[in-house]
Nucleic acid binder design. Structure first.
Lengths: 216, 216
DNA sequence: GTATGCATTAATGTATGCATTGATGGAGGC
DNA sequence: GCCTCCATCAATGCATACATTAATGCATAC
């Protein structure tokens, strides 16, 4: 289970998500093989896996290039996320036996984090809310797709977390979604969540532009 | 450009989509390497690529297993497709400079094919319509994601093409979508297309169940 | 007849070697 | 001084060898 490939994949993935391997950086197979203390073969496979996950690209003589996203790229990804999550929200609102406890817990955690002024905790809770939303909606493939795109914007979200305005609307937005879900109103759940995500996207782009962050 | 890996990937992909490699079938690396006349290395990479595309799964001692979808799997995939395409439809309706010619052409082709009773041509035109929709909406990632899931249900769609009832509503559905797009009504475009896809999904599952097709 | 354990073996995971290929820098011409 | 062409070489694509591992069948005990 602790195959070399898995280990390489985990290292690359984490490194890219946390910024150890920064956007735009390039690495050759040999280089990474040395760094990770294994042969090129598992490294090569791991590189292709992160590329398939949309976290990097692999080009013949340039090695692996960590993806560096422009504001437009972010907008695209957020649009996909919005589509998937809004559909999931609608589905969850239409579902009959369902468990909203994880969502409620995440919402509570967000409120608490905000009252403490702890943005990192807030981000964590926010992510948990969105993750739970996808999980509870009961469509595995949809959840996986959302997770994929969430990963792709993870770095940007973390980087802008302390640059962005205080997320004062976030509690209200999420509470509103929960209300729509509880009242079995798929249309409204869709609309509410879609609007929520669009605002988030615009906020992110605003921060990116205002701080002149070209690619992240 | 005609690398062994690319060739292997193309062969596997086509084989899976067309049914040469039937659902549920299993193949080992060595087996495919012999079949394709190359070493295991490029075959292995191609296998992982088709697995990443969701067309098969690779399990340690079982080789590559061509994905065999249940009616529930189909429903999941269609739901994802619905979310993505409906979002694209809404976006296209909101877009200002846009080119609807490809969509109109595809619609015309559908009408013509139907009047000739040519289901294969109809399927082709229908696919072209949906493809154009995603392309014209202008979100590359969204289009790629949709293409990915379209591939996953391609085989089922082809297999049931001649089992399903005549697609009499399809022209009306697509025309209605075009109208909504032309009148710059994103909400309506979303609703119309979402309903269209849901009907298609239900029809497909109906055929699957009625003909007792367990997994395809 | 059934279950247990072991030996066999096929399949994979990883390492490594080799040929190919395209990027890079420098020499030479303008 | 700048551009072009070519040689060099690093990086990769692919093949192959080897170690590891788990599935399989068989012998044996009950």
């Amino acid at each position: 289970m602790a195959g070399q490939t898995d280990q390489a994949l985990a290292t690359l993935r984490q490194g890219i998500l946390t910024g150890t391997f920064p956007p735009g950086a390039r690495y050759t197979e040999t280089e990474l093989a040395t760094l990770l203390g294994m042969s090129r073969t598992p490294v090569r496979e791991a590189m292709q896996a992160v590329a398939a996950a949309g976290l990097a690209s692999v080009t013949p003589r340039r090695g692996m290039t960590v993806s560096a996203l422009s504001a437009e790229d972010m907008a695209e990804i957020y649009e996909v996320l919005t589509a998937l999550e809004s559909a999931a929200a609608a589905r969850l609102a239409a579902l009959d036996p369902r468990d909203l406890a994880p969502l409620e817990a995440a919402l509570a955690a967000m409120e608490h984090a905000l009252s403490m002024g702890d943005r990192d905790a807030w981000a964590e809770a926010d992510a948990a809310f969105h993750r739970s939303l996808m999980e509870q909606a009961g469509n595995t493939r949809m959840a996986e797709a959302a997770a994929r795109y969430t990963d792709q914007v993870h770095r940007a979200r973390m980087l802008t977390l302390h640059l962005r305005p205080e997320p004062v609307h976030s509690v209200r937005d999420h509470a509103e979604l929960l209300t729509a879900i509880r009242s079995n109103d798929p249309e409204r759940a869709h609309a509410v969540h879609s609007a929520h995500r669009q605002r988030a996207s615009e906020m992110l782009q605003d921060v990116i532009r205002r701080h002149h962050l070209p690619r992240l």
